[in-house]
């Protein structure tokens, strides 16, 4: 029963997330790269759309976490699965650098990459290549992380 509830909530959240990414244009790598291209500001080629998305989402999530902190448990599960505050360590820094390079090279991060599946038209094979790389990278990280004892 809990499993079924989790799946229904995941479908609603995932589909809304996919609609939002698509409407925001974040499924289009060019829009993301045009935001990250700060050197284009003086020439007028900069695209601030991603900034609007980010600030809007952050405002809602500030409110959501304020609500969350006042509650013992979520409405449809036993407890909150919110990570505790760990230290800033080498894996965090190295991982963030690598993620930034990959994101900056192609303009796709994990959510938009799968959201783009019905949107790419004749570029479907290009997207498949990216997704193969993405999942291979995630899988390798799982192997690397399980090979060494978990940091406290």
């Amino acid at each position: 029963m809990q499993e079924l509830r989790n799946i229904v909530i995941a479908i609603l959240a995932g589909a809304t997330f996919g609609i939002g990414l698509t409407v925001a244009g974040m499924t289009n790598p060019k829009k993301v790269l045009d935001f990250l291209d700060f050197a284009a500001i003086p020439t007028g080629g900069w695209d601030p759309t991603l900034g609007v998305v980010f600030v809007t989402v952050l405002a809602i999530m500030f409110a959501a976490f304020a609500l969350q902190r006042r509650r013992q448990a979520p409405l449809m599960a036993e407890r909150f699965y919110v990570p505790g505050g760990g230290e800033i360590d080498a894996p965090l820094v190295v991982g963030s650098i690598l993620f930034g390079i990959g994101w900056g090279l192609v303009g796709l991060c994990p959510g938009p990459a799968i959201a783009a599946m019905p949107l790419v038209g004749d570029q479907w094979l290009d997207l498949v290549v990216f997704l193969v790389g993405l999942f291979a990278g995630v899988a390798l990280a799982v192997v690397v992380k399980s090979a060494k004892p978990k940091a406290a």
Binding site: G20, V23, A24, V55, Q68, A77
Partner: peptide, 29 residues
């Protein structure tokens, strides 16, 4: 800035935020 789509960014951001808030407050994740 001819490619700037503020309305798309705002509506899309609203939906992404509501999805993440819903997921947090319903499933706790």
């Amino acid at each position: 800035m001819e490619n700037f789509l503020p309305l798309n960014g705002f509506v899309g951001g609203l939906l992404i935020g509501l999805s993440a808030a819903f997921f947090l407050l319903m499933s706790g994740r």
